[in-house]
Simulated assay, not measured.
Amino acid sequence: MQKKLLILGAVLGLLGVILGAFASHGLEKLLTSEQLETFQVGVRYQFYHAFLALILGSTTFISNKAKNILFVLLLSGVTLFSGSIYGLATNSLTGFDFTKIALLTPTGGLLLISAWVLILFQVLKMKTK
């Protein structure tokens, strides 16, 4: 599970750099400044959780069962949260109306919040030496 979390963190980080650069250099003339800022919010949260996955993959105080759950929460949460933000921000460029699936954003956010809550519980369960 360590490796899966580390790979997830690396892939999310890699895609974050690519998407952030794409927004700054490829979308700057196609989107309004408000749409670009919205897109960058998705990138920012993707990076936060890329770093979290890298940290989790490097820790030993969280059980493998919890790490499996965290992997799913982070992957699905970032996909739904940041992915839907990317879609909403670029809605004017596509033929698909992303506002019809706007509920994916808060659903993804709840999954990410759940990951942080699970981490908190794992830390509270730790035995102090």
Rank of each mutant, 00 (worst) to 15 (best):
H49F: 15
F39T: 04
Q46S: 06
S84A: 13
T94G: 00
I119E: 05
T128I: 13
I113G: 02
A66E: 07
Y45A: 11
L93Q: 12
G109M: 09
K67T: 09
L88E: 05
G108K: 02
I62E: 02
L14T: 12
L14S: 14
D97L: 09
F81I: 02
T60K: 15
H49Y: 14
V117P: 00
S24M: 10
N68Y: 05
S76E: 05
L103Y: 15
G108H: 07
L111A: 14
I119D: 01
V43H: 10
F98Q: 04
Q122H: 05
W116I: 07
G108P: 07
K127V: 11
E34C: 00
L27Y: 05
M1H: 12
S63N: 06
T105N: 08
K3V: 02
L56W: 01
L74E: 02
L12Q: 09
L12A: 11
V43C: 09
A66F: 01
L15S: 06
T32F: 08
Y86D: 04
A115R: 03
L75E: 01
G13P: 08
T38W: 08
V123Q: 10
H49R: 07
T60F: 05
F61N: 11
G42K: 03
S92V: 15
S114P: 00
K65P: 01
I113A: 14
V43L: 09
S33L: 14
A21R: 03
L80G: 08
F96R: 10
L5F: 10
L93R: 10
D97V: 07
F51H: 01
T32L: 12
Q35D: 10
V43N: 06
G13M: 08
Q46I: 08
L14A: 15
L31N: 12
F81K: 00
N91Q: 10
Y48M: 08
W116A: 11
K65M: 06
I119W: 01
L19E: 08
L75N: 03
T94D: 01
A10L: 14
A23P: 06
V78H: 08
Y86K: 02
S76W: 07
Q2E: 12
I18A: 15
L36R: 13
A115Q: 04
Q122L: 00
L104V: 05
Y86E: 01
V43T: 09
L19T: 11
N91R: 08
K127C: 06
L70V: 06
S76H: 00
L124V: 14
S82K: 04
A102T: 02
W116C: 08
T105D: 07
L112A: 00
L75S: 09
F71D: 00
H25R: 06
L19M: 13
L12N: 12
G108Y: 00
